[in-house]
């Protein structure tokens, strides 16, 4: 471990001169132990904390029709979500390695008579390509242009250090909820085969595009009619499929009904 070496060079020494001692301490075991401890701490820690996404849902009590607020037809946009499956697993895109989610959207009130061209359009979550919004983001951004223009100005002000992060957050929030601007009302309808990721992606798009008014609802029979029509006009695509995974609704334990 540690040794004391005597240096006896030359062999000629004056009598009475102190022997020169050099001390070598072998640190190898200490390093070994430290490495082990480091490994332990590295494996046991969470360096990145999870993020959260805030969500506010409406009450699920019955609300009278008079009390319901109606969105303007020109502002409304409905997104029907769907996830593609391969067997019982969500289908993974070979190129990106991400799950394939499809969005079928329509604007305004659904035209179930199919007299206008307001049919469903298929889109995907593509994100940005070369910093340009693509896919569903482009469409939502187009609907929310007024808010986004102001948002970009604020963002530039923040980047140029004209306003602080707190001010920016506050102003951006006010801007997103500015009732003087034309803002869309988005209804997100996750289809029965949608995965949780699909929903999160949709909520994420709302945050990215500064859309303050959106709700999550279950698809109605009108949506099924629209999807059916989409299937008919686009041969080879099937959206209405049996449930891939059913929800585990275990029968109630009889002992609990005491």
């Amino acid at each position: 471990m540690a040794q004391i070496e005597q240096s006896d060079k030359g062999g000629k020494k004056k009598k009475g001169a102190q022997k020169k001692m050099s001390i070598h301490v072998d640190f190898t075991p200490m390093v070994d132990m430290n490495m082990l401890l480091i490994t332990f701490f590295m494996l046991c820690t969470t360096m990145i904390k999870s993020q959260t996404l805030q969500i506010v849902l409406p009450t699920n009590e019955n609300v009278k029709k008079e009390q319901q607020s109606q969105a303007k037809q020109s502002e409304a946009i409905t997104l029907i979500l769907d996830t593609e499956y391969e067997g019982d697993k969500p289908k993974i895109d070979g190129e990106t390695g991400k799950t394939v989610h499809n969005i079928y959207y329509y604007e305004g009130i659904a035209d179930t008579l199919f007299q206008t061209s307001k049919y469903l359009t298929k889109e995907q979550f593509i994100g940005n390509v070369n910093r340009e919004a693509q896919g569903i983001r482009k469409i939502l951004r187009g609907k929310n242009q007024q808010v986004m223009a102001q948002y970009e100005t604020l963002k530039n002000q923040w980047k140029n250090k004209e306003i602080t992060k707190e001010e920016f957050d506050k102003l951006a929030k006010q801007n997103a909820a500015d009732s003087l601007k034309t803002r869309p009302v988005v209804v997100i309808k996750p289809g029965p085969n949608t995965t949780y990721e699909g929903l999160i992606n949709a909520i994420d798009e709302m945050n990215i595009n500064q859309i303050s008014r959106y709700s999550i609802q279950l698809p109605t029979s009108v949506d099924t009619v629209l999807l059916k029509h989409y299937e008919q006009t686009h041969p080879g695509e099937t959206i209405i499929r049996p449930l891939v995974r059913k929800t585990n609704n275990e029968p109630a334990n009889p002992a609990q009904n005491g």
């Binding site: 990145i48 895109d93 979550f125 940005n128 994420d204």
Partner: peptide
Amino acid sequence: KLNKFSLMTALKSEDEPTQ
């Protein structure tokens, strides 16, 4: 009546492809 809650997610950048 607990209508406000949060969903745990991991972080990604805005430019990242979602699909």
